[in-house]
Every structure is written in structure tokens, then in C-alpha cells.
Amino acid sequence: MCDCQNAYAELDAIILRHKDEPGGLMPVMQEAQNAYGALTMDIQQRIADGMGTTLSEVYGVATFYAQFALEKKGKHVISVCMGTACYVKGAQAVLDKLAEYLEIPVGSTTSDGQFTLQATRCLGACGLAPVMTVNDEVFGRVTPDQVAGILDKFQD
């Protein structure tokens, strides 16, 4: 038996758990993304087959919601909150500085696969504005000149 069977064992278990649940498609996609890091075409096809629906249906859902990623993200994901409170307190300058420092446009990953830079919706930590997160760690009251120091911690 080839490896592909094993590779999808977890996905098949996820599908089995939600198959008969009304509206189970999104929970499957969410759990699959957590398990595999992204919803690649192969994974979407397998979800479609397993859930008894079409690839176009799954792809439609995957591309509608911002949180579904079709490609794998970098090792560390940097998110800059672009909620109103953060924006009026200078989040754009922080985001610009990050893009300049990493030399990548917002929404992309560095060529070494270390960092993905993204703008995100309100994180609800408005008291700490402007806010950025690296993976699950939150940094509040960030200024553009702190950016390099914060990223140094995560650089391998």
C-alpha cells in the first residue's frame, strides 16, 4: 500500500465524524486545514468525495471565506490587526514597515518559508492598539521601530 493512504487517514477520520451532520462541510474544512495547514486541491477533492458533494462546491466555500488557505503558510504567521481602533493608531505604518523589513508584499510568504505577512480583521484587543500577532503571541502598542526586534525572536 502506498503512503497516500496513510497521509489521508486523519482527513478520512474527520470526514467520518461530520459526514451525517447537517451543515458538516465547514467543520470538516476547518479541521482539515488545522491538520494539514492548507486545503490543497487534493484535499478538497477528497473532502468532496467523502462528503458526497462536488469539488466546485468545496472550492466555492474555500475561496469565499478568508480563513481558508489554498496554499501552506510560512513557519511563522505575522498578522497585523487592521481594525478601526488599530488603524487610527497607526497600524498601517507597522504593516508597511513589516513589508519593507521582510521585503515581501502583504499577503505573501518569504522565499525561505519563514514568515507569512498578513493583514487581519479586528482581533478585539482594541485596548492594546495597534496590535500584531506572531503565531499565537500577541504584541500590543507596537511601533514601526519595534518590528525588527520582535521578528528577531522568531528567526531561526
Binding site: Q30, G60, F64, R121
Partner: peptide, 25 residues
């Protein structure tokens, strides 16, 4: 409990219900 997936329009009630059904909101 159903988790959203990052679509502002799903705060609109009819879109929210479609999203719970597992479709484009």
C-alpha cells in the same frame, strides 16, 4: 457551536444561516 471562517457578511442573518448550512455565506 459553529465557527465562522472570516466573512464579515455572515453577520447578516440570512447569510449567517446559509453559512451554518456549510455553504458560501
Amino acid at each position: 457551536i459553529r465557527l465562522g471562517a472570516g466573512a464579515f457578511v455572515c453577520g447578516e442573518e440570512t447569510a449567517l444561516m446559509v453559512s451554518i448550512e456549510g455553504r458560501r455565506g
